[in-house]
């Protein structure tokens, strides 16, 4: 079974069109041309669908990195596929 981190990376690659081997190191909101405000919401909505969780507007503004998202997903217990 795929880990939560792997699923998260798969979604990020798909939303930002990075390709299966694209590096995700140091990916930070607004530092990557694809991760702008529209990409951010696209990512949030895709994550909600994949992990069946609901992000509040506070969550939306607080996450900046993949680590932030992973820790938020762990907090919300979003593991379902």
């Amino acid at each position: 079974m795929e880990s939560m981190e792997d699923r998260l990376k798969k979604i990020v690659r798909s939303v930002f069109n990075l390709g299966p081997s694209g590096s995700l190191d140091g990916l930070v909101y607004k530092d990557h041309p694809r991760w702008d405000s529209l990409g951010h919401i696209q990512l949030i909505l895709s994550l909600e669908k994949e992990f069946r969780v609901k992000f509040s507007s506070e969550d939306v503004v607080s996450v900046r990195t993949l680590e932030d998202i992973a820790s938020l997903l762990r907090k919300k217990g979003g593991q379902a596929s």
Binding site: S37, I41, I44, L45, E48, F55, S56, S57, D59, V60
Partner: peptide, 10 residues
Amino acid sequence: FYSLAAGPLA
């Protein structure tokens, strides 16, 4: 935009 994304319109 971010508030709408967390609401029913999302």
